[in-house]
Structures are given as C-alpha cells and as structure tokens.
C-alpha cells in the first residue's frame, strides 16, 4: 500500500475558500444587506453586521423582521448550496476556479420558509448557523438559528423547505 501525502494546508484552504466565495458573492441582495460568511472546515457562520438601514422599529431601535427573515433564508440557502458543493469540490469533480460568483446553478429554490421571532433584534451584529436536516434528490429541509450577544439566547429561528437544483447529468 502506498501512502498518499496529505495536501498542503494552503491548497486545501484555497480550494474551499474559492468555492465559498463563488456561492456567497455576486448576489446583489446579499451584498445590499452586507451578509458575510465565516468558514471553519465545513462549518459556516453567517454574519450580519449592523447598519441603520436594517432598522424596523426606530423607537427601540430593533432590526426589521423582514431583514431577520432574509438573513435566515440566505443562511439556509448558502448552507444547502455549500453542502451540495462540498463533496464535488473535495473529490475533484468541480474545479472551484471554474465557478463564477453569481452564476452558480447550484442554488436551491425556497418553497416555504417559517420564521419564529423569539426576541427583538438589537442594534448590533447578528450571527446564524444552519443545519441541513434532510437532503433528498428533489427536496431538502433546513433549520436555522440566529443569535446576537449570546449563543444560547436565540433571537430567531427558522425552518425552510427547498427545491433542489436540477443537475444536467
């Protein structure tokens, strides 16, 4: 048995970051809201930096419920797209350099999305992590949790059902 040397860490990181970049960038609305993604291995954390234009209740002030919904939906879609892309990137079926931001055909379509508002969104950065609870050939379900200062005190959670992208095989 010949031993295969592990790839250099830079090569692995560059490949994964290029794949994530192609998913996250190039979508105007995601850039309008200012959503970014942090990656640790295959784990993604969505970050929504606070901005005045995100305010829904100027008296509190609090983040707009629609912004919260959009943030959670974006987290869910990127997580699902990322989970589809991950295997194909890792086993070399797709060259991440060939992926063009905003032209990604791997985006699932939202069928339904339900958001629970647990606390008001404070005027500060928000974070979200999504988990694909079911991923089939045609349909997928994703659960998302969002928090601000304290990971255990969620300010919103959501469940979404998605139509998987059709592959040309």
């Amino acid at each position: 048995m010949s031993f295969k040397r592990p790839e250099p860490v830079q090569v692995v990181k560059q490949r994964r970051d290029a794949a994530l970049h192609s998913l996250v960038h190039g979508v105007p609305y995601v850039e309008f809201l200012g959503i970014e993604f942090e990656r640790h291995g295959d784990e993604l954390t969505a970050v929504l930096p606070f901005a005045d234009k995100l305010i829904g209740n100027p008296m509190l002030p609090a983040i707009h419920g629609g912004v919260t919904a959009a943030f959670l939906e974006t987290s869910a879609i990127i997580e699902l797209g990322w989970s589809i892309l991950w295997d194909e990137i890792e086993d070399g079926r797709i060259d991440p350099e060939s992926l063009i931001p905003g032209q990604n055909a791997l985006f699932p379509k939202t069928i339904g999305f339900t958001v629970d508002y647990l606390r008001s969104g404070l005027p500060r950065d928000a974070y979200a992590r999504a988990r694909v609870t079911r991923s089939g050939r045609r349909y997928a379900s994703v659960h998302v949790e969002a928090w601000q200062d304290n990971r255990d005190r969620l300010f919103a959670q959501a469940t979404g059902h998605f139509l998987m992208p059709m592959r040309d095989e």
């Binding site: 979508v27 105007p28 609305y29 995601v30 809201l33 829904g56 707009h64 419920g65 629609g66 912004v67 919904a69 959009a70 943030f71 939906e73 974006t74 939202t110 999305f113 958001v115």
Partner: peptide
C-alpha cells in the same frame, strides 16, 4: 428579486 426582499415586504 431575492425571496428575502419579498419577506421584508410581507412582514411590513
């Protein structure tokens, strides 16, 4: 248009 923008409109 992004579904999130539709969500914001619906919520408002």
């Amino acid at each position: 248009i992004h579904g999130g923008a539709v969500s914001a409109l619906m919520d408002t």
